[in-house]
């Protein structure tokens, strides 16, 4: 079982390394990910948002719906931890009362 799993993981490494041959080189300016949307966002940041930090401009202006969902996600995580730990804390007390 252990050997089977190790063989599977080694095969997965080989598969990922083989698949990476199709990806663009490191730091390639002509890669599709660097050509499609980001130059447009950089120009729009300079002309419309007029703040130096590109990351803040994209995070809180162009993609602010995304960040809104993000804030809801971490808020929900806090509430989930609160509910899980508080409910399981109250259970022994009720058992002790009976």
């Amino acid at each position: 079982m252990k050997l089977l799993m190790l063989a599977f993981l080694a095969g997965l490494v080989a598969l990922l390394v083989w698949a990476s041959a199709d990806l663009p080189d490191r730091a390639d300016p002509d890669a599709p990910a660097n050509q499609h949307l980001s130059p447009e966002l950089t120009r729009m940041t300079e002309s419309e948002v007029v703040i130096p930090n590109l990351v803040s401009a994209i995070l809180a202006d162009f993609r602010s719906y995304d960040t809104l969902g993000e804030t809801f996600v971490i808020f929900t995580a806090g509430l989930a931890v609160l509910l899980v730990l508080q409910r399981s804390r109250r259970v022994p007390e009720e058992d002790g009362d009976e």
Partner: peptide, 16 residues
Amino acid sequence: RAMGILIIEVGVFLGV
């Protein structure tokens, strides 16, 4: 727009 970004960053800051 910079003012709106600041408002939103403060909200995110408090939440985090």
